[in-house]
Design a binder for these strands. Structure first.
Lengths: 214, 214
DNA sequence: CTTCCTTGGGGAGTGCCACTATCCAAGCAT
DNA sequence: ATGCTTGGATAGTGGCACTCCCCAAGGAAG
């Protein structure tokens, strides 16, 4: 299929597809002649994945490129590859190690991981972006005078762990390795908007249950 | 205190504070004379809240202004006011009602709400941004050939409901109304990075538990 | 064959956003 | 009185995700 058809079937404007091609988010089509290129179903699928990451997952273009690099990298082990997407996700600014709130938050998060027995996560604290994000968020709460300690975080963490178990269980229902990888990427990136939306819906439901529509 | 001191105590550059003043995110200081303004602890607190929303919550400046408008609006009822923050949060593009995937996703989400007995949320579907976000995300999965149906979503929704219960329980431990409102805003906006980070940490933990560091 | 429309590649431009640098006049300190 | 500091206003910056436009090559119609 040609660029125009790829555009029509995906709903993405041709100019944007050209931009993605230039940015390396999409492999070039098979060159038929100097002025014509041919794209196949795999291009269409990849394009839809890219669009979903950018529009639903709000992932920056540069990050999409990085994530796709991991998807296509057959040399990686499974856990690494499954994690690669998450690790490439948008990062909070590097926390300032000298800041007292950051230090307090680090202690608090460390205590949380101990309490939960998350040994593996604990081993990854020096490099995991998720750990750093958590520390920054907890520090922001503390700066505003709210104590977001390990006791309060633990029940949330417990619920998130069950969510992660669901994620991986769902992933394992997919037979092929290629499908699993793509599903893991989607699980890491697109699940978050789903969870966020469900969380907000649940807040609306629970708030109105408690207080009505006053 | 003067602008320079406000800047020093908050860690926000003076130029940025001036920008926030211009954008109406911060009330002007008490004018001492034509060339001096005085700021108090309340300004500092508000500035830290604004920074947390923007940097940790990634909330756009225009949205922060809107949210703060609700925070300061004493005329609103409690549920409305608690929800106002969430409703103002960044929106996904308006779903295209004619798209078949959107329609399928709407049916699926409707079935989910029925199954869960979330009557209040169901009444809000026409206007709730959270509902629309969920529909868009589910549609994105379907477009890629993954069936993200009510049966799969239900356990996630159940977990998110428990999370919302924790949110509101925590909020109710705060005695003063003003503090509750601020905490609700923070709960709606800053909790999400916390949940997201916990979710990713849990995925890392569970992935390595199942597959090791291969 | 020639005219004209379409196509794909590439560079430059756009619009938005969160700042940020500069300028200016008024205060204040010395 | 001189010179540094302060706060307000305006214009500029840099990053990002597109999006516009031009050009030359194909292909189709007459």
């Amino acid at each position: 299929m040609r660029l125009a058809e790829l555009s029509e079937r995906s709903g993405v404007p041709t100019a944007t597809i050209k931009y993605y091609l230039r940015e390396g988010l999409l492999a070039p089509g098979r060159q038929i002649n100097a002025r014509t290129a041919d794209y196949d179903e795999e291009h269409l699928r990849r394009l839809r994945l890219v669009r979903a990451m950018i529009q639903v997952g709000r992932v920056p273009v540069a990050t999409v490129r990085e994530v796709l690099g991991h998807v296509d990298d057959d040399s990686l082990g499974r856990a690494i590859r499954l994690g690669a997407a998450m690790w490439a996700l948008p990062q909070v600014p590097e926390p300032d190690e000298d800041d007292e709130y950051i230090q307090a938050a680090q202690r608090e998060v460390g205590a949380l991981l101990d309490r939960l027995g998350w040994e593996n996560a604990k081993r990854l604290t020096t490099i995991s972006p998720a750990y750093r994000s958590l520390v920054v968020a907890v520090a922001a709460f503390r700066r505003l005078g709210y104590d977001w300690g390990a006791e309060l975080l633990a029940p949330y963490a417990e619920l998130m762990h069950r969510t992660a178990v669901l994620d991986l269980d769902n992933m394992e229902t997919h037979p092929s390795q290629a499908e699993r990888i793509e599903f893991a990427i989607l699980g890491a990136i697109l699940n978050e908007p789903v969870l966020q939306a469900l969380h907000r819906l649940a807040q609306e439901e629970e708030t109105t249950r408690r207080y009505g529509f006053e």
